[in-house]
Simulated scan of single mutants.
Amino acid sequence: MNISPFSNVTGLFQSHQTKPTITNTTTPYESQKKFASVLKESIEKVNEAQIQSDKMTEKLARGENVDLHSVMIASQKASISLQATMEIRNKVVEAYQEVMRMQV
């Protein structure tokens, strides 16, 4: 039985050991603008859900032709989205306070 040496093995592994290059094409200012726009859009969606719920509730109170279950669904969607937004805000404030307490 003839076993050949592993002289070419290092050449095979070197081609697979190249590190991937990470290029960041956005500046911190652009990232901040993107984050701000996403945050603004999210708050606008919550506001729209609240307004829709209020309109449907007013229609129901005036006796207009509105399904009660549609009003309740809109109301619950608005309530849940507002609660989720408040929880996210609380977590962000908590994280900010934690960062501010760090000693440098």
Rank of each mutant, 00 (worst) to 15 (best):
T23K: 03
T23P: 01
T23W: 08
N24D: 13
N24K: 13
N24P: 02
N24Y: 14
N24T: 05
T25F: 07
T25A: 13
T25V: 10
T25Y: 09
T25I: 13
T25W: 03
T26F: 10
T26D: 08
T27L: 06
T27C: 13
T27K: 13
P28C: 06
P28E: 13
P28I: 09
P28A: 12
P28G: 13
Y29W: 12
Y29P: 05
Y29S: 15
E30H: 06
E30M: 15
E30W: 01
E30L: 10
E30I: 09
E30P: 06
S31R: 08
S31A: 10
Q32N: 15
Q32V: 12
Q32K: 13
K33S: 09
K33T: 09
K33P: 06
K33W: 02
K33I: 03
K33V: 05
K33L: 14
K34Y: 09
K34W: 04
K34A: 03
K34R: 13
K34Q: 04
F35Q: 03
F35K: 04
F35V: 01
F35G: 07
A36W: 04
A36F: 08
A36H: 06
A36V: 04
A36K: 07
S37A: 09
S37N: 06
V38T: 01
V38C: 05
V38D: 03
L39E: 04
L39A: 03
L39D: 12
L39S: 03
K40M: 06
K40W: 10
K40F: 09
K40R: 05
K40Q: 12
E41Q: 04
E41A: 14
E41K: 11
E41C: 08
E41S: 08
S42P: 02
S42V: 01
I43P: 13
I43K: 14
I43E: 11
E44V: 07
E44C: 03
K45F: 02
K45E: 05
K45C: 13
K45M: 08
K45T: 04
K45W: 00
K45A: 07
V46T: 06
V46Q: 11
N47W: 06
N47A: 15
N47S: 15
N47L: 07
N47Q: 12
E48F: 11
E48G: 06
E48Q: 12
E48N: 14
E48M: 06
A49G: 08
Q50Y: 10
Q50I: 15
Q50S: 10
Q50P: 03
I51F: 11
I51L: 11
I51V: 15
Q52L: 08
Q52G: 07
S53W: 00
S53V: 02
S53R: 00
S53A: 07
S53D: 10
S53F: 00
D54N: 14
D54Q: 15
D54S: 11
D54M: 13
K55Q: 12
K55V: 09
K55A: 12
M56N: 00
M56H: 00
M56V: 00
T57V: 15
T57M: 09
T57H: 14
T57I: 01
T57F: 05
E58Y: 08
E58Q: 06
E58N: 14
K59V: 00
K59C: 01
L60G: 00
L60D: 00
A61V: 03
A61E: 14
A61D: 05
R62P: 01
R62D: 14
R62Y: 05
R62Q: 08
R62F: 09
R62H: 07
G63V: 04
G63C: 02
E64M: 12
E64D: 08
E64Y: 09
E64H: 11
